[in-house]
Nucleic acid binder design. Structure first.
Lengths: 217, 217
DNA sequence: TGTACATCAGTGAACGCGCGTTCACTGATGTAC
DNA sequence: TGTACATCAGTGAACGCGCGTTCACTGATGTAC
């Protein structure tokens, strides 16, 4: 796939045409290859086939590029989670299982994004836009929790926010310990997907939300 | 506290006396300050008050120093977890609650160790000693799971390995998202300890291990 | 439609800096006798 | 107990390198009239 304007062969002469996108792409490649530490502004420029001064037209510094990568990551993450959840269709149980798989799939397929989002030390405090993007991604989990909680009779309903945080924590834990698509992954006597699904079933059971779909079990 | 031999004022003359320990200490300080990325061999030497060539007497390179830090981290982590678990005394439920708190306390109090252990990209595959240390730490969770499982009648017992992995994943998830003592921490409408304890109660409930101690609840 | 001009997005050379690493060296420590 | 010697753990100067950043510049693009 090409990310240069027009989709043809390389930069046409003096102007690159799509340098900002290309730099983001370069950052992703380099992070995937060597971790968020082993990625430099200069190397990104080289990767894009451009002079070392060129990136400064688009990003103040390395940090700003990293933050942009994280931002795009959260946005794509949100999109994939939302697509998997699909408003809880056909039923919350089935959709929730898809959601978990989508979470792990993202960590596995986009380790560079995942790194930039959760491990690169990009501060959410100093970047409201990034914080919003992160919250929007979390909101998908929150909505799913609401829907699951709603399958339980009023009065016996657990707090949905806490539930969403638990789901996030276990998903993130499994993703970063066992499912990421780069180094640092640990061996496991089952697939991460199986581990997460089992964990979620136990957890929901504990909340009194017993496998609403009976799907797969 | 002093980590120089004799505990007095600084290096005495030509020989430092305890350079290896001091370099590890330096790495921890620098990682805590700027993340695992922002720590260099040269700066560690400067921190230790020693020429840039001196560290090569003790570590082949930066990577080896990082691995040593991670190794010590896992060892200390195991120690603290084991102490908190205390062989399940006075009862598995109470001890398990202590264990969870100890996990989060470590992540909060030793963010540099935690980074080196889980985020610095030090590969377990190429370092058998490190892998062993990590496994020994996990074994504490595994033993705790065994003990909790044993409180349930035979035949209804869940698989303890899977249980230990779930516990690890949720603890690690909460620790790295909400409890670490450095940047990257996310805000939370409760303490990480409360979140973890609630999560574990729900999870154990789901396994049919209902709050064996009734302690605190 | 053509021309003049402003703006944009790059170049490429240059710089200072700190890092990793090496080298021959030397002061301190430990040990054999 | 004293001396000679081997070994250990540092020094400090030096190097090549790549990074981040700046600067005056210039080719390409867009727009006003």
């Amino acid at each position: 796939m090409s990310w240069k304007r027009g989709g043809s062969d390389g930069p046409r002469g003096y102007h690159h045409g799509n340098l900002k996108e290309t730099l983001v792409r370069a950052a992703l490649e380099l992070i995937a290859e060597k971790g968020p530490a082993g990625f430099t502004f200069a190397e990104a420029a080289r990767w894009a086939g451009v002079s070392p001064a060129a990136p400064y037209r688009h990003f103040r510094d390395r940090e700003e590029l990293l933050a942009d990568v994280a931002l795009r990551g959260f946005s794509q993450f949100e999109g994939e989670l939302a697509a998997a959840w699909a408003n809880g269709a056909p039923d919350p149980g089935t959709a929730f299982e898809r959601l978990g798989k989508a979470y792990l799939a993202f960590a596995r397929n986009e380790p560079a994004y995942y790194s930039a989002m959760f491990e690169a030390g990009v501060s959410l405090d100093t970047n409201p836009e990034l914080r919003l993007a992160a919250e929007r991604a979390f909101l998908v989990l929150r909505n799913a929790s609401d829907a699951l909680v709603a399958t339980v009779p009023t009065g016996k309903r657990p707090p949905a926010l806490m539930m969403a945080l638990h789901i996030w924590a276990m998903s993130h834990g499994i993703a970063s310990l066992f499912a990421r698509g780069d180094a640092g992954r640990r061996a496991l006597p089952m697939t991460p997907e199986e581990l997460l699904e089992a964990g979620m079933l136990v957890y929901l059971q504990g909340l009194g939300i017993g496998a609403p779909a009976e799907a797969g079990e």
